[in-house]
């Protein structure tokens, strides 16, 4: 028997590469100045799903909620071996906090058949690690967080090892289940060359529209629509049209989405300009070092 896996993936700015010129004066981050990448731990979640499929068979769907540019990580997932990719994009998703994000994702997941839902432990931009547990609650299923190894899948039960900080725990749960997967779980595989050849031209409807609009600057709306329809048809024939949903398609209640569905608001943001402290420069010689130690003793910092 196979297992149906749904993997939630997020495109994130590469926050490891932040330098001074990436920050705006008001302390916000110029997202466009940073390369957008596949959230690292989502690759571990995806790898876990691929290993389940390798061993037991089944079907893998990846979903991302984000801007049209997030289609990149959907194609990347197709290169690595998923069966289906879905872009969930809608302006009305903007400003969603983790509660609204998990609500929207739950509406999408409910449209699918699933045994195992997989998330990364944490996204490297929001850094909250809240979406996984909130999604599990919204789906009404059991969660196993901080998973570092899938020990066993047997019929309708799963056994997994979770990191508990100062050690580990082996837990067993009935399916369906939601796992949040840590970076230690596995080494994500690279894209398969054959699949890359096959899917490199896969596109989402919104990308097709953007492309056609760019190629035909003088065309009116109706012409663009016609050209796009034609292109969709061609891609569907080849199995290269990536599915795209908006909030209507997943029948989301708009009052729980975006700004109105988000109880948390940002009051302010500051960049970490490290507070210039009162500091002294000490020469690297015996006398200066000894004076410093003396001062620290006098200040009762050293007993």
């Amino acid at each position: 028997m196979g297992y149906n896996c749904v993997v939630l993936i997020k495109q994130v700015p590469d926050t490891k590469r932040i330098t001074g010129d990436v920050m705006n004066d008001d302390g916000t981050v110029k997202r466009s100045a940073l390369p957008a990448i596949f959230n690292p731990e989502d690759l571990n979640a995806l790898e876990m799903a691929l290993q389940i499929k390798d061993k037991f068979g089944g079907h893998i769907t990846v979903i991302t909620m984000g801007l049209p540019a997030a289609s990149d990580i959907l194609r990347d997932s197709l290169f690595r071996g998923v069966d289906e990719a879905i872009l969930l994009t809608d302006r009305r998703c903007a400003a969603s906090d983790t509660l609204a994000t998990s609500y929207i994702l739950s509406c999408a997941v409910k449209k699918l058949d699933y045994d195992i839902v997989l998330c990364g432990r944490q996204a490297i931009d929001g850094d909250t690690a809240q979406v996984g547990p909130q999604l599990a609650e919204k789906l009404g299923i059991t969660q196993i967080t901080y998973v570092e190894e899938l020990t066993e899948l047997n019929g309708k039960t799963i056994t997994a090892r979770r990191n508990i900080g100062n050690g580990f725990q082996q837990v067993k749960a009935p399916l369906p289940v939601l796992l949040t997967v840590t970076g230690d779980a596995n080494e994500p595989r690279v894209a398969a060359a054959k699949k890359m050849m096959k899917y490199k031209n896969a596109l989402t409807p919104i990308e097709i529209q953007q492309k056609i609009t760019a190629e035909n600057p003088d065309a009116v709306q109706s012409e663009i629509k016609e050209l796009a329809e034609h292109k969709y048809g061609k891609l569907v024939e080849k199995g290269l049209l990536i599915k795209q949903w908006d909030l209507d398609a997943i029948e989301a209640d708009l009052s729980w989405c975006g700004m109105s569905g988000s109880p948390t608001k940002v009051h302010r943001i500051q960049s970490v300009v490290l507070a210039a402290k009162e500091s002294k420069e000490i020469e690297p010689d015996e006398k200066a070092v000894s004076d410093m130690i003396h001062e620290l003793i006098a200040d009762k910092i050293i007993a």
């Binding site: 509660l99 850094d127 809240q130 990191n163 508990i164 900080g165």
Partner: peptide, 23 residues
């Protein structure tokens, strides 16, 4: 914001439909 705290609090926040700030 321990392992258990970060496992538990979002589950409660979701059920309560309240906001939760992390870490």
């Amino acid at each position: 914001a321990t392992i258990a705290g970060r496992d538990l609090a979002p589950r409660i926040a979701s059920a309560t439909r309240a906001g939760l700030t992390a870490d």
